[in-house]
Design a protein around this nucleic acid. Sequence first.
RNA 1: GGAGAGGUGGCUGAGUGGAUGAAAGCGCUGGUCUUGAAAACCAGUGUACCUUUCCGGUACCGUGGGUUCGAAUCCCACCCUCUCCGCCA
Length: 421
Amino acid sequence: MIDIKLLRETPDIVRDSLSKRFIQLDIDTIIDLDKQRREKIQIADELKKRKNDASKAIGRLKREGKDPGDLMEDMKDVSNRIKAIDTEVGDLTANIAELLAVIPNIPHETVPIGIKGEAHRLIREGGAKPEFTFEPVPSFELARRLGLIDFEAAARMSGAGFVIFRGVGARLARALINFMLDLHTREHGYTEVSPPLMVNRKSMTGTGQLPKLENDMYRCEQDDLFFIPTAEVPLVNIHREEILDGNILPISYVASSPCFRREAGSYGKETRGIVRIHQFDKVELVKFTLPGKSYDELERMLSDAEKVIRLLGIPYRIMELPAGEISFASAKTYDIEVWSPARARYLEVSSVSNCGDFQARRAEIRYKKDGEKGFVHTLNASGVALPRTIVAILENCQREDGTVSVPDVLLPYMGGIEVLQ
RNA sequence: GGAGAGGUGGCUGAGUGGAUGAAAGCGCUGGUCUUGAAAACCAGUGUACCUUUCCGGUACCGUGGGUUCGAAUCCCACCCUCUCCGCCA
């Protein structure tokens, strides 16, 4: 959530932000409602003061054995007026909150302007693209031939967009998860967390998935619980409605979890293979920082996620997203993309974002340090998503005989399996 | 799912209709003292909103309603925690 004061005092910053994101929203209505609300609060507060003073006087009179009858009679009317105004204020507050909740975060000043394509800024590249003496086979074909993934059985039991990793395929997924968790906990200082996979509405609102993305999530209607689309949601909500000691920041969490996404409306593209599926595993990184430190931490987080890909030896590149492409809650986002030789294109395996105080404001996550207080900054990064990383491993490490060599860093996790065959 | 108990500030914990935004203790911050530290003593120490030069005001005792001139305190609903029973990986 953006600060209502920003809207009140410098509405042009918000207008500018919306236009950079190519979003049209009526903010004048909010500004007007906010003005009305404050006026009514003032009136109500004055009446409440009268009421409080009178109540004290009545108490005093009664104790002295005098009759406060008239005063009590007068206060009945005041009380009713307060009730009426409070109802109006309540309605206005709810109305404003609702409108404010759909305003996206303000992009950081360094974020490039634009939308698709050329507006993406290349930050750096790594790893050499493999040079094949044969036509590279697409990952879904390799996975099928090697018996790593069963698409048909998954479709039968759950529908399109679900997959079963089986045998060495499941082993590879588990190896990747363990490798990443070990890397982030041992070398990058993250605390491992195993969070709930279903969370309530308030949590989803706190991180910014709601109210906008309700249709993109699986929901258990009976209990009004949502399946998490990313572990970012439970990780950030760990500290919801808390005041953190500024001296223990930054706090860094890592979790591996399945992610559930309805991907409504995306049928037709990317439906083949495991590039876009309804349930996938992802290792997620989340940090809580002091406001002044978040952009330093963003770079560190980017390199933490990048390390995973570098150690796996997969060719990749890092792109900075333009304002028109960054997500709702983000102020600045880098994508890490891995190379898919069979498709001759890059696939996003990680999004690394600084949300500034946007989520902290929604989720009421504050800090206090040396008498100074405020909202923390929150950051999140995939570190990284499994299926597309598996695609990249299969395709980049494939050999002419149809087998795939396992990256060295995964060998300790593969129980002696060096080649997928 | 059933029965019971309970949810008060950073923590422990008083408080059953008016002098309580909330006793007391602990913790924390500053000061005195000390070579320094500890102890002792003194002072301060919740969050948010409105107003704003200053001053000030309002709300908040799990959440939301209600009763009342007045609610932490009474009533209703819901949420959460604990104990026992049932069920269960």
